[in-house]
Design a protein around this nucleic acid. Structure first.
Lengths: 247, 247
DNA sequence: GTAGACATGTGGCCTAGACCACGATTCTAC
DNA sequence: GTAGAATCGTGGTCTAGGCCACATGTCTAC
């Protein structure tokens, strides 16, 4: 199967190298959709690695949906065209997401202040009633056109230092990562359809009574602590959400 | 750590037993959120299994989001309350989903016939232009109340036999599984907000001009072949979609 | 011919070790 | 005291085997 050799003295672990190699083979069409790849024992021998190591590589591709294990038959290349990328893309910030689509992101800050949390926000953030929270409300734009109206709340105590930054210029997640060493690790989103009220419609430069997507989101860090609750209203004519699922 | 013993002669693999045990410990609060669990070497010794086996169990819980590995520190119990279940739930049929919420699902079939695919449907199903497809349009109800209007297309050639069943009574996915040995394995969904037109609004018993969620879905089987394309309109006042994401 | 026993080959699971990187801790020399 | 060195302990990776279940194919006895 070509001249692939794992490098023992590379920064990347062997099984990752193998996973990458196989991923490339599949992408390049060397291994066709539906084809059975060589048995694990054979591959591990030809690559001079233990079968466990090879299996770790295959496990990775199976989790990605590129390969499917079939007991007593072999491991076949899945013909799925769509992979897990969406799951990862889910954590792109608005800015990154727009850039990825070739649009220029910008923001207009409508509110950036600390305030007393209402009971719902406090509960979601796991704070006591009466706690201070940061309210950050922004119109998110792409190429100067309003795309979404985003209102997010963060615990004031933990992130008060953030108030010295310009959230019109910089991505919230970038600041959280750089200044606080925190990055979103999991989130829960609920999506519903709404009719726009006057104020929100005006901020988005559309008519009241138009349809819009409202996404509520609770974001957590690596330790599972809630770092942010957010409610974003997306213009229905500009936005469509895409999800991939696999079992 | 209690009297847990793995059983060597059980149908369940050892690492699954351990994963289940740990899951139970966490659920029961024996291991608290944020706590560091004993090191792998210690656990594997006390459970009389190899470290690799123990790691397989921990890997499973990490993938579920119950545990988080922290290099050089240990493995801690995540305080995530929400786990991967949603990803699986994504494949519940409408019927199962309603039942899970304690509602009684039913359907009213508005159309069930074969027809010539339009170019968009044909392309999505991977069929040539002019191919026959099955059009199944149903109002999906819960406790007799319309919840969604679903229109789905399946390739006629593969599934023509389905036309002898009563889709008002039985779940599409149940029939696909039982009669064709096929089950959805992956899907891609796009979600957008729309304003209801008169006809759709009437079918859903709401007013034209109300907001609704429109979900387009392409479903694939294990081999990645498209088995169904579907467009469902959900009443905004009855439906809200929930997603969980983790990196 | 046919039925049953047997062999083969696959992925699934398991073991008992090994070394690595690297932050935290402890010890040592000054 | 303090800086630097040595050690420890963690998860991360890797090895070279092992046995298991079981579908499929093959062989054997009749």
């Amino acid at each position: 199967m070509s001249t692939f050799r794992v490098s023992r003295r590379a920064s990347e672990p062997v099984f990752k190298q193998i996973a990458g190699h196989l991923r490339g083979q599949i992408a390049a069409g060397q291994m066709r959709y539906g084809e059975v790849i060589p048995p694990e024992r054979e591959l591990s021998e030809s690559m001079h690695v233990s079968r466990m190591t090879l299996r770790a590589a295959i496990d990775e591709l199976v989790r990605e949906g590129l390969l499917v294990r079939q007991r007593r038959r072999g491991t076949v290349v899945s013909s799925m065209r769509v992979r897990k990328s969406a799951t990862i893309a889910g954590f792109l910030s608005f800015s990154d997401e727009m850039r990825q689509r070739g649009l220029i992101p910008s923001s207009r800050v409508l509110a950036f202040r600390d305030e007393i949390a209402d009971s719902s926000i406090a509960a979601q953030l796991g704070l006591p009633i009466g706690a201070h929270v940061i309210d950050l409300t922004r119109v998110r734009m792409a190429n100067g056109e309003p795309m979404a109206l985003e209102r997010c709340h963060l615990p004031y105590e933990r992130f008060s230092r953030i108030m010295q930054f310009d959230l019109g210029k910089e991505s919230l997640y970038d600041i959280l990562a750089r200044e606080f060493g925190t990055r979103p690790s999991a989130c829960e989103e609920t999506i519903e359809a709404i009719l726009l009220e006057r104020a929100d419609a005006e901020a988005l430069c559309v008519r009241a009574g138009d349809a819009a997507l409202m996404v509520r989101r609770v974001t957590r860090d690596e330790r599972g602590t809630v770092i942010e609750v957010e409610r974003t209203i997306f213009r229905a004519d500009r936005y469509r959400m895409v999800f991939f699922r696999q079992r």
